[in-house]
Design a protein around this nucleic acid. Structure first.
Lengths: 343, 343
DNA sequence: TTGTATGCGTTATCAT
DNA sequence: ATGATAACGCATACAA
């Protein structure tokens, strides 16, 4: 390992002081033009790169953001892309760590990022995470945290999220308008707010239409496709089976779809199906699956913008909450009326 | 911003020297047990965290790896997961940056990561990248680079990759065995080795079966689904249209599939289709698409392992090349014989 | 057992 | 216009 050249090396070879070199390099204050030229030339020659570690130590800033996400599925990777976009623009480098939906892993990631380098965090929590002490420790060190997508309870930090309740409402309302009467919902883990909010929207839609809520049509399970498959099999085995299913992710919708096909039921006539996330795959399946689209890229961008703002100002933003609207894309799996009922 | 506590603070409050504090904290050498207890207690109390920046500056190591990928699609995000797994285990933090298939962006990412923090790089190049000067600069600074997935020409670095030629061969050989006679290939950008190698495999299979190569059945286009769609439309408009298509990604296979369906052709009878990557979606489509699976997670793990090895030893590994084997998954889109011909 | 001094690479302050 | 020096937080060789 040959040591990278430093200003000291330049100073030595040019027989001038390191302060002069430093100044010449940064075009600061008064430096003899000839001296500067010489410095610049030599720097170029030996491929001098300032040591950012030293600078960071000096300025107590690394210009990097730690992003912790539970996974890198379609939606989250779009969100990360959004974060990346804005961060890069603002001169920040993004470090992405996956918690793999594990609380322990999330703690490790947090510590590693925290210990070392980042100026702050943009976080979407794992499905296992209930306690947020590891995040509070970050804040104890006065580093900013922005929360996006999945919200923990009990953390004073700006939040950027989808209007999940509205998403659940739109999906359910649509199914109701299509004449479905017994609508089941495959919800995710009940530890997650995105899960619960979408169910809230579902409940709200039922209420809005004076429909009765049936507890046994609300299934909490993992986000996993397989879980959804088995849960759907159960649902379809009921004496009075549901005639529509709203799943809070497209992965789950696919699991449900497999179970439905296996049972020999036709979508949308025998049963309706609406997913969530609007993954590209929904368009490609037969039948194409209706799905609630979320502006993932925009959510990521918004999160990064708030982060940058926090870094650049001292005003308290912990109560800031930005809510973006979802949009339902109606496809074959749920459209059994040619003309949607307009109310 | 309240300043984070340092050993200096501890030393001051305990009226001892910072070196003693330092030693007590790290259980190093001889320290009076009482002194140590006091230090540990206070450190705990004020939530002391060592400043890794200072340590990094001292040791010239950050224990972080810069990973640059063109995007975070299914395969690459699996690979990154593999890298993450091994890196975490070895005490490294992974910084992921996306180049978005842009040469310029890749340079920026490289510089940012390089300038600041990482001990080395694990890289898959963008489709635009032809020159690798920005990578050579890294090596000039004696930081290790491991290349995975997509290989640049002209860079002396260990490489972990799929046997792409074998993948292309398997796919084509299978189509031939199914009796397809005019097999087209939708190749990716001809700047990418993964693209060219898969085509090489295609050519090899044709030759192996004494079939004639037809230049106009080899189409180079973007990895994009839309490009594949239009390219397929062209192919199907030919006087003597192909009776099978091998696409070097599943995204492209989907584009091809849409064009095929639009034309009213049936898979696998009228036309066969084989994709690449074995994305989960291939199983779900109608018909399910045959696809060449790559051990993405394993490739990522292997890349990280080599990286760690490079960090821990001085032996030259630049000529090391690890090649993992793909595996064809045969599904409806290409299987028109009930029993595969065994040769 | 503990303290002092130096260095990691850089910038900023104060002299010269 | 330029140089010397302190400081950032820590580890360590050396001195006591």
């Amino acid at each position: 390992m040959i040591k990278a050249p430093t200003i000291k090396d330049i100073a030595k070879r040019l027989n001038i002081s390191i302060s002069t070199v430093s100044r010449a390099l940064r075009n600061a204050s008064e430096v003899n033009p000839e001296t500067r030229q010489a410095v610049l030339k030599l720097a170029e020659e030996i491929n001098y790169q300032p040591n950012q570690l030293a600078l960071s130590l000096l300025h107590k800033q690394t210009h990097s953001i730690g992003v912790i996400v539970p996974n890198l599925d379609y939606v989250l990777s779009m969100m990360v892309k959004g974060i990346d976009e804005v961060a890069l623009e603002a001169g920040y480098t993004v470090m992405v760590c996956q918690s793999n939906e594990s609380y322990g892993r999330e703690i490790v990631n947090t510590r590693r990022l925290m210990e070392s380098l980042v100026d702050g965090f943009i976080i979407s929590i794992s499905s296992e995470t209930k306690l947020v002490d590891h995040f509070k420790k970050i804040q104890d060190q006065k580093k900013p945290i922005v929360i996006f997508d999945r919200l923990p309870t009990d953390l004073a930090a700006p939040k950027i999220r989808l209007d999940n309740e509205d998403g659940g409402f739109q999906a359910t309302q649509h199914l109701i308008e299509q004449g479905y009467k017994r609508i089941a919902v495959l919800a995710g883990p009940d530890t997650l707010d995105i899960s619960n909010k979408r169910v809230d929207g579902y409940l709200k839609a039922l209420k809005h239409n004076n429909m009765r809520v049936q507890k046994d049509l609300i299934i909490h399970c993992d986000f996993d496709q397989d879980y959804a498959y088995f849960a759907t099999k159960e649902l379809l085995g009921m004496k009075k089976r549901p005639d529509a299913i709203f799943t809070i992710s497209d992965r789950m919708a696919i699991g449900a779809m497999l179970a439905i096909k296996e049972k020999g039921l036709q979508m949308p006539n025998d049963i309706g199906l609406v997913g969530f996330n609007n993954e590209p795959v929904t368009k490609l399946l037969t039948p194409a699956i209706s799905s609630v689209d979320q502006p993932a890229f925009e959510i990521g961008k918004a999160a990064a913008k708030v982060f940058i703002e926090m870094m650049n100002s001292d005003i308290d933003m912990t109560s800031r909450e930005i809510v973006l609207k979802p949009k339902l894309f109606i496809r074959e799996s749920s459209q059994r009326l040619l003309h949607t009922v307009v109310k």
